[in-house]
Design a binder for these strands. Structure first.
Length: 454
RNA sequence: GUGGAUGUAGCUCAGUUGGUUAGAGCACUGGAUUGUGGUUCCAGGGGUCGUGGGUUCAAGUCCCAUCUUCCACCCCA
């Protein structure tokens, strides 16, 4: 027990049992993505640091995993920076690659780099791990999988509708009850304008976003701390106090920010999306949340966040529209909208709610026992016939005690065991044992294939 | 990055104000059953008490450092 090996902080192994459940999540999500016409891409685990830095705000930069240059990287570093132990400046000299932090920025890079090969609007999905040097917690890992769907090169709000329908379908298929929260960045900026603090929108939204968690008074306190004037806070209060149905909220917002250009535009967008969605029978609960901001500062239109209704674990899916994401890579004026499903949190939700479909946990339907060299030729022939008939089967590789072979089948959850000993070999009739009922029969190979197929 | 808790057998955990040889359940191995798992009974193996240092006649127990996991903040899937 002295030096037990382990994975790095915040990372995990996935055993066969976990993998079968994780694959269930991935394939459910993939199925929906493809049904809506999205195509898969993959990008490298690492990107040039220049593609990553500055895209996620100051906090984000700190959470990037940087990869040390190869070779004698210190020889090229500035001696003085080394002397001063200036890690931040030094890091740009000894590291030029980093692990991806999300899938959206690499996607933007991909689109700009391959613009000539892509026909727009480009609908893509991507399911790969991302890395963040965060401090781990429940539902928070340093390596986790995101399942992104985005469409880029279309301003139509029909894309937002598409995404919300996919969210609804994915979680319906997974049998998770969810609340889909909607907002619009333009509404947020309309609010900032209406209360006379248009320059301080970021400060206001960051504080406002915590409303759910910490309540009204602490939000006001934080606003003061962030340098928002007392008059503005006073005007913000009715916005925070907004309650009721989507329609009621929209109407109240109308009277509060309808006169600002941005606010009016945001409200109209939100109304349009809701009107489209009306035509569909969504299972998820839709909710307008004027305090929803989300961290990423590149959203410009719709903001979407999904929470599990029955488990407290933070958001399990989120996204929004960004008008100029590819602009940072030198391709301005292309709008995109997308959402990201958090596979690891969805896993935790399914685990907590015990919503996994029943599986045997084993691929093999049949285990053929090994009695030794004399029986091997017949056993192999039976194995070949079973597999040829489309039955997943395996032959125990060593002629060990039958007890051990039976236990192996039992532990792995293999439903049938075929006993092939001397009698079975001579008569060419293996003994089929049903591990669930304990029932045993001697029969021909053709007959037992029929039985297993049932 | 800031603050708090935690770590004893493969797993879940006991272990008294510091005091002889650190325990239990489950799991594992062997046997009862030399061709039968899952149930039952019997026996057995396995721990330098996260790691490194310190205090003490004596440390799983007290002190310091470090790492892991968990919780809150920051932020977020």
């Amino acid at each position: 027990m002295a030096q037990k090996p382990s994975t790095p902080k915040g990372t995990r192994d996935f055993g066969p049992g976990e993998m079968s459940r994780r694959n269930y999540i991935f394939s459910t999500i993939r199925q929906v993505f493809e049904k809506y016409g999205y195509q898969p891409i993959e990008t490298p685990a690492m990107e040039n640091l220049s593609s990553l830095l500055g895209k996620y705000g100051e906090e984000g930069d700190k959470l990037l995993f940087k990869i040390l240059n190869s070779g004698d990287y210190l020889s090229k570093a500035d001696g003085q920076l080394l002397e001063e132990k200036d890690s931040v400046k030094l890091s740009t000299q000894i590291s030029e690659k980093g692990l991806r932090y999300d899938l959206t920025v690499p996607f933007a890079r991909y689109v700009v780099q391959h613009r000539d090969e892509i026909s727009f609007p480009f609908k893509r999905y991507q399911m790969q791990p991302v890395w963040r040097a965060d401090r781990p917690q429940k539902g928070r890992y340093r390596e986790f999988y995101q399942c992104d769907v985005d469409v880029i090169g279309s301003d139509s709000l029909l894309n937002e509708v598409d995404l919300i329908r996919m969210i609804d379908e994915v979680f319906e298929n997974l049998q998770i009850n969810v609340v889909v929260k909607l907002n619009n960045r333009k509404i947020l900026s309309g609010i900032a304008q209406a209360i006379g603090a248009p320059e301080q929108m970021t400060e206001i939204t960051v504080a406002m976003d915590k409303l759910d968690k910490i309540g009204e008074e602490p939000v006001y306190a934080e606003l003061r701390e962030r340098g928002i004037s007392e008059a503005s806070i006073e005007m913000l209060k009715p916005v925070l106090k907004l309650r009721g149905t989507s329609e009621e909220r929209l109407q109240s917002l109308e009277s509060l920010i309808g006169k600002t250009e941005e606010g009016a535009k945001g409200l109209e967008e939100l109304r349009t999306i809701l009107r489209y969605l009306n035509a569909f029978d969504l299972k998820a609960v839709l909710e307008i949340d004027q305090s929803l901001a989300r961290g990423l500062n590149y959203y410009t239109g719709a903001i979407i966040e999904v929470k599990a209704a029955d488990v407290q674990i933070g958001s399990i899916c989120g996204g929004g529209r960004y008008d100029n994401l590819t602009g940072i890579f030198g391709m301005p004026g292309v709008s995109g909208v997308g959402v990201s499903f958090g596979a690891d949190r969805i896993y935790d939700v399914l685990t907590e709610l015990e919503l996994y479909p029943e599986t045997t946990g084993s691929f093999s339907q049949v285990l053929i026992t090994n009695f030794g060299e004399t029986e091997e030729p017949f056993a192999l022939e039976v194995l070949r016939k079973l597999q040829h008939a489309g039955i997943a089967a395996e032959l125990y590789p060593d002629p060990v005690k039958l007890k051990k072979q039976m236990k192996f089948a039992n532990d792995k959850g293999i439903p049938f065991v075929l006993l092939i000993g001397e009698e079975e070999r001579v008569s060419e009739q293996p003994t089929l044992k049903n591990m669930q009922t304990g029932e045993q029969t001697r029969t021909t190979v053709d007959e037992l294939i029929r039985r297993i197929h049932q």
